[in-house]
Design a protein around this nucleic acid. Sequence first.
RNA 1: GUGGGCGUAGCUCAGUUGGUUAGAGCGCCUGGUUGUGGUCCAGGAGGUCGGGGGUUCGACUCCCCUCGCUCACCCCA
Length: 427
Amino acid sequence: MARNQGLQPPRGTRDFYPDELRLRSWLFGHFREVARRFAFEEVDAPIVEHADLFIRKAGEEIVEQLYHFELHGRHLALRPELTPSISRMVIARAGALRFPLRWYAIGQNWRYERMTRGRKREHYQWNVEVLGEPSVSAEAELIAAIFTLFDRVGLPTTAVRMRVNSRALLEETLRKGVLRDRPEAFEPLCVVIDKIDKIGAEAVTDLLTGEIGLSANEARTVVEGLAVRSLDEAAARVPDGSAAAAELRRLFELLDAYGVADRVAFDASVVRGLAYYTGVVFEAFDAGGTLRAVCGGGRYDGLIEQLGGPALPAAGFGFGDVVIQELLSDHGLLPELAREVEAVVFAVSEAERPAAVRTVRRLREAGRAAELVLGTPRLKRAMQDADRAGAREIWVIGPDEAARGVARVRDLESGEQRDEKLPDGRS
RNA sequence: GUGGGCGUAGCUCAGUUGGUUAGAGCGCCUGGUUGUGGUCCAGGAGGUCGGGGGUUCGACUCCCCUCGCUCACCCCA
């Protein structure tokens, strides 16, 4: 309705009606349960931050698409991701924290961009971070947590595959060349390389020689290297004794111990679009290849120091709520979730309401989800409502029952009825 | 930003070469007596057919503009 456009949420944002919020809560419940089993602690931060926290100069889209505004002379922004906020929290208390930390958060992120399937302008993200651990044991733990989540929501083991690479490996190949005198060129270089699937090898080669300043030879070597899909082959392209290659080998060993190595493959084209990644990077994709990345992450050993904190190694991933729901929908795995009302208490007339209130209080104190019918509709109506709410029982208190000091309890599944004593009136 | 598709009841949609009071399913409301749900039956409410303009005796139907939604490209979480 054009007339009612003001009633629609802004483009790319969502309302969550009860059905949709139940589904979201179901998903978040799995996020939290996996995090619990992996012994991560939940944290949270404001959705609005100082814009500076997110603004970097490597040409990332995530910065260009920032929702930001000036208010009373302050430049603020809606967070586009959670990692900077968590990093900020760590820095503020770095002196009092014991590392490594295992933290996670589930929060809404904002990015002003065009929409397609699986992408909106706001989305919730499960963000899991290991802070203060330099070894790939951190990445292995993170990747294992992701697969645990996939398994829990019912996806077959073949439905999602993880692609892994290491930016450190790429950096090693350039250390004696273009990066010798200006290591700071590495971040924008990665941002450029990340575009290869979209703008093509030639355009990336042009950008590498033009904007980044590689020689034609270096650029060609880099672009060729992106096609490599074997760790051995990739390792052969870097100097002997490559630390990055050894790390990747160790990572695959550990993933084998976690039982997920066969779902993970080396892929040199994975570099991720965020500037701050420094080491292992990874992305999970649906096997059908019809959706965008389900989740992704990697190691960012320099970010915390760049933000003004100590030199603290860190790794983490972000896992959005939108793509996974699309994927589950494609697999017919979205659950039908009903309301969780257990009992409905109904006073036939206002005279019985105090007794109904005492009754519903007792049920609630016993931990049951109990709804008190607020008006005095006909019994037929109250039962219909109870039925539709999925309640197991309706407790009816009318003049007869009140006189006998009982409630008539009907089991809505079996239709059987019994009497339950009313609580006495003194409580 | 580019290209395609679509905008008809709360929801999902149908609407015959433009022709009389615009339909269905689901949902909602009422009733099938007097305090009993799910099933069934019978009724009912609800739409200026996204908005504006044009063509026509006549437009939901054709044309133009506009707004919105959506998919792909693009790009990224």
